[in-house]
């Protein structure tokens, strides 16, 4: 169910120049404030010192060229500020493994990893992820070697129609990294952001447990 992205945005892109970025703010690179006391404040100061400086800028409501780091590759693409990360991946970069289900953060079909954390790509803007490391289902396998979660989904028959599957797999891969695969009940709770209308849940739970090395049941 692609929305207006394919039509209006690509028309806009054809009319737009290579870079329409408008720097309307002060333009200077500004470091974040680092004053404060106490351990937490020091930790924050340390983070601020290492974080990339913040640029005050405004992108107009029209196509702009940005770069995204997706599956280890730097990709240049044209988006509008309103383009979600999901639409950028699918419509601009052709990475259609990430699915659009509800387009409102309720179903999890669009789950990708941003800096290692699972997020709903329909609920974030591409322009908000210019400094991030993005991993999609296309980037999970190492060459021809499937990710353990991918292999477990095949072996456990953890899908029927397959539409939610890439989101389920991305979410499961993150869940295992987070250490939330300790029991079937824990897997169910921590997979709650991924809906399967075919109802393949028992096999999904089994696959996640198997991939985590915790036994299928």
């Amino acid at each position: 169910m692609p929305d207006d992205v394919g039509s209006r945005e690509s028309a806009g892109r054809a009319a737009g120049g290579p870079s329409r970025r408008q720097v309307l703010g002060r333009g200077a690179l500004l470091g974040a404030a680092t004053v404060g006391a106490g351990v937490a404040a020091q930790a924050e100061a340390a983070r601020a010192a290492t974080a990339p400086p913040v640029r005050e800028e405004t992108l107009a409501a029209e196509p702009v060229e940005i770069s995204l780091r997706v599956n280890g590759r730097e990709r240049t693409l044209s988006v509008e500020p309103r383009t979600t990360l999901l639409d950028a991946l699918r419509e601009r970069l052709g990475l259609t493994g990430t699915k659009k289900g509800c387009d409102q953060g309720a179903c999890g079909a669009c789950t990708v990893l941003v800096d290692g954390r699972r997020v709903n790509s329909c609920l974030t803007l591409a322009v908000m992820r210019r400094d991030a490391e993005i991993t999609t289902i296309e980037g999970l396998a190492k060459g021809d070697e499937l990710h353990p979660v991918q292999r477990a989904f095949l072996e456990c028959d953890a899908f029927q129609c397959g539409y939610c599957t890439s989101g389920q797999i991305m979410s499961a891969a993150a869940l295992i990294e987070e250490g939330h695969a300790g029991s079937p009940g824990e897997v169910r709770e921590w997979m709650s952001g991924n809906i399967c209308r075919c109802g393949a849940y028992p096999n999904i739970v089994a696959a996640v447990r198997q991939a985590a090395g915790g036994g299928a049941r």
Partner: peptide
């Protein structure tokens, strides 16, 4: 989605 511009800010005052 309706078009909108996008601004990043680095201080509460600026926001």
């Amino acid at each position: 989605m309706r078009p909108f511009s996008y601004t990043t800010v680095s201080s509460v005052r600026s926001a």
